[in-house]
Amino acid sequence: MFKRFGLALALLMSSAPTWAFETQATAAWVYDMTTGTVLLDKNAQTPIPPASMSKLMTLNMLFEGLHDGRYQTGTEFSVSEKAWKMGGSKMFVKPGDRPTVDDLIHGIIVNSGNDACVVVAEGMSGSEEAFAARMTERARELGMENSFFANASGWPDPDHRMSAHDLGLLAVRLIEEFPEYYPYFALTEYSYQGRVPANSQNRNPLLRIKGGDWKADGLKTGHTEEAGYGLVGSAVQNGGRRIVFVISGLPTDRARAEESERISNWAFREFTMKTLAKAGTRVAEAEVWMGEAEKVGLVPAEDLARLIPAVARDKITAEVVYQGPIKAPIAKGDPLAELVLHVPGMPEARVPLVAEIDVAEGGFFTRLTTAARVLMGRVFAPDAPAT
């Protein structure tokens, strides 16, 4: 039968005034990459106009081509008249130019070049339409269920949509799968052949923040009249903890800058990594059936570290769940139980617990005394269920 019993976890943590975060963004998603914890989800599954933030998918397609050897950073692409005539943000390529992949990555990330995106799309798929269809197909393969691409640049189109969640998943992928190319996202200036002095600054406001206990290093801003101001951002704390966040629908550039900084401060300062139990430290015991010992210690196989909201320091509860008593023999390291952690406002966490030591099967005397106990239990409590 299932056994449950509670535990007291002593956590020494500083308190904070609040945990809930109110954002004026119409859609937001905040994710702690170090622990895989979603810290904020506001309309994150709703498809929204992503504006230039969807350029991250164009970059993903290009990075995949670099990764599998189809292209090199020095590969040159041609510039069509369509690309040259693109409006909005540009890196200012023109027909006759032969920008390299390296040039185009700079132009997309730093200058948010719509023209650069068309160059990439036509160079990889022949046409922007074919490239957009492949982007949508690839998004499905990567688990982005609420992404639909009509073009490579995020140019306004009623069929061009991504959810904040999908943008966040894409950001995590770019960081994890393409570490050799991720440093591009932290670049603050670029001018292709000196042509964009007025548009050479990366618009990501977090890249201009100096000092403090965290540093931003990506990824992409976006803005159209329909979408408002948005940002897919990532920052890393001095200790190595990394967050990714997506905000969209802000009314001004200034509001985007302020909200992105507030979210980063909140994510890093209102949550703390705590080691709740060291590997091999006994946290509970399980009853043993027909063994040389009546109980066996339960320990985590690895250090049990969790991200904890500062305000939850006195509200964390835990229980151990196992189906027992557990029949001997038992080998050290056998998974026997789960430690279930309850942190207010966060998803339930289940951590496996393993046997602390070997427990051999009991001999004849053990079997005899166990049988006697069962028999006596049935005599004096005939209605009790058998174990």
Rank of each mutant, 00 (worst) to 15 (best):
E348K: 02
I316T: 14
P158Q: 07
L39Q: 14
R378V: 13
A216Y: 11
D97V: 08
L250F: 01
E302N: 07
H67P: 03
Y182E: 10
V321Y: 06
A152G: 07
P183Y: 12
K295C: 12
A16D: 13
E22Q: 10
V299K: 02
R195C: 13
N238H: 06
D358V: 04
A28W: 06
V340E: 14
G88K: 04
T275L: 07
T188I: 12
R134Q: 13
S78C: 02
R4C: 11
N60L: 09
V379E: 15
R306G: 05
V283D: 14
F5I: 08
E122W: 05
A284N: 11
M273F: 03
G107N: 13
N146S: 12
A20F: 03
M124V: 15
K210V: 14
P344T: 13
L9Y: 11
E258N: 01
D303K: 00
R313D: 11
A16E: 13
G123V: 11
P347A: 13
L219H: 00
D314Y: 03
G69W: 10
F149A: 05
L39Y: 07
E338C: 02
A384L: 14
G123H: 12
R208H: 09
R70Y: 08
K210I: 09
G333R: 08
R173D: 15
A198D: 15
F92A: 03
S52M: 09
L298T: 12
D314C: 01
R173I: 14
L12Y: 08
K210M: 14
K295R: 10
T37F: 02
N43L: 00
A152F: 02
M346S: 11
Q323G: 04
L250Y: 03
R195L: 11
A227W: 00
P335H: 03
G362L: 10
P300N: 14
V296E: 09
V320A: 04
Y181H: 07
C117P: 00
I109G: 03
D314F: 04
K274I: 13
L104I: 09
P325M: 09
G239E: 09
F178I: 05
A235D: 15
T100A: 03
A16S: 15
E285Y: 00
A235K: 01
T75A: 10
K85Y: 10
I326L: 13
A227V: 04
A139C: 05
L104G: 04
R98E: 14
A310G: 02
N111H: 06
P179Q: 11
E128N: 01
M1A: 06
W155R: 00
S80I: 08
P382C: 09
G113L: 08
R373F: 08
S264W: 03
A186P: 06
E356N: 01
I109E: 07
W84L: 01
G69E: 11
P49R: 00
D217E: 15
E81Q: 05
M86G: 04
R256W: 07
